[in-house]
Amino acid sequence: DLSALRVEEVQNVINAMQKILECPICLELIKEPVSTKCDHIFCKFCMLKLLNQKKGPSQCPLCKNDITKRSLQESTRFSQLVEELLKIICAFQLDTGLEYANSYNFAKKENNSPEHLKDEVSIIQSMGYRNRAKRLLQSEPENPSLQETSLSVQLSNLGTVRTLRTKQRIQPQRTSVYIELGSDSSEDTVNKATYCSVGDQELLQITPQGTRDEISLDSAKKAACEFSETDVTNTEHHQPSNNDLNTTEKRAAERHPEKYQGSSVSNLHVEPCGTNTHASSLQHENSSLLLTKDRMNVEKAEF
Rank of each mutant, 00 (worst) to 15 (best):
F92P: 15
C26E: 14
V7G: 10
D231Q: 02
R135E: 11
I123K: 03
H238I: 14
G56V: 07
L98S: 02
I215G: 15
L50E: 06
D66G: 08
S186N: 01
N297F: 00
I67K: 11
T96A: 04
L5W: 02
S150G: 11
Q209G: 01
T160Y: 05
E142L: 07
E74T: 00
Q138K: 10
G182E: 10
T189V: 07
A91L: 14
E140I: 10
K54R: 01
S122A: 15
I20K: 05
Q209T: 12
C46G: 15
S263I: 15
K222W: 00
N243I: 15
E302V: 03
T233I: 09
M127H: 05
A133F: 13
S79N: 04
A224C: 08
T207F: 13
L62H: 05
C23T: 15
T233L: 03
R212S: 03
V161K: 15
E32S: 09
R255L: 13
N131P: 04
L217P: 12
R130D: 01
F227L: 10
A91W: 01
K44N: 05
E8F: 00
P61K: 04
L155A: 11
S263T: 07
Q73P: 13
Q138I: 06
R135S: 03
E249P: 07
E214Y: 00
R169L: 07
K49D: 04
K37R: 03
K31Q: 07
V121N: 04
C63V: 15
C63R: 15
G210R: 09
M17L: 09
S58C: 14
T149F: 12
L50W: 15
E249D: 09
E83Y: 13
E8D: 13
M47R: 12
A223F: 00
E148I: 00
T160F: 02
K222N: 02
D218W: 00
I124L: 03
Q261H: 02
P172L: 07
C225S: 13
P272L: 00
T149V: 00
L158Y: 08
A220K: 00
A4C: 11
S219I: 01
S219M: 00
L5F: 07
S139D: 12
N267T: 03
K37L: 02
Q18G: 06
S71C: 12
G159Q: 15
K19M: 04
C225W: 15
P240L: 05
N191L: 00
P61G: 08
E8M: 12
C60S: 15
D95L: 15
K109S: 00
G56R: 07
S113M: 01
C60A: 14
I30Q: 03
D218V: 06
L48K: 11
L289T: 13
I25L: 05
N143C: 08
R212D: 12
E148L: 01
C46L: 15
D231L: 06
S216P: 13
R135K: 11
V265G: 13
L217T: 13
A107E: 05
T68F: 01
E249C: 09
H278A: 14
E22P: 14
P57I: 08
L137I: 05
L117V: 02
Q168G: 06
D1A: 08
K31G: 11
K134S: 07
R77V: 12
C63A: 15
Q73T: 14
I20M: 06
S71L: 14
K44V: 12
A133R: 04
D213I: 00
H284Y: 02
T76P: 07
S103H: 02
L136Y: 03
L203Q: 10
Q125F: 10
A220N: 02
V82R: 09
K64V: 03
K44Y: 07
A133H: 05
Q53D: 08
G128N: 15
N52H: 13
K49G: 02
C46S: 14
D95I: 15
E148Y: 06
D188Q: 07
Q18T: 13
V177F: 15
A220M: 05
K250S: 11
V10W: 03
K222I: 02
D231W: 00
Q18A: 13
I25C: 04
S35K: 02
D294E: 15
Q168K: 14
N12D: 15
T163Q: 14
K44G: 10
V34Y: 04
F106A: 07
Q73F: 05
Q80K: 08
C23Y: 15
K54Q: 13
E140Y: 03
G274S: 08
T277G: 03
L268E: 13
C60N: 14
I123C: 04
L85F: 12
R70C: 11
T194I: 03
C90P: 05
L48F: 12
G159K: 13
C225G: 11
S264D: 15
Y104E: 05
K54Y: 10
Q53F: 03
A220L: 13
T211M: 14
P144E: 07
M17V: 08
N105A: 07
Q209H: 14
L50T: 05
S79I: 12
P141G: 07
V153T: 12
Q154Y: 01
S186F: 00
D231R: 11
P257G: 12
T235S: 01
I20E: 01
G274Y: 14
F45P: 12
I170M: 01
L204K: 11
Y129F: 08
K44C: 08
R6V: 08
E8T: 08
L291Y: 14
F78T: 10
L204F: 10
E32D: 05
N157G: 06
V232S: 10
R135Y: 03
K69M: 00
Q18C: 15
S126Q: 08
K259Q: 14
S3V: 10
Y104R: 10
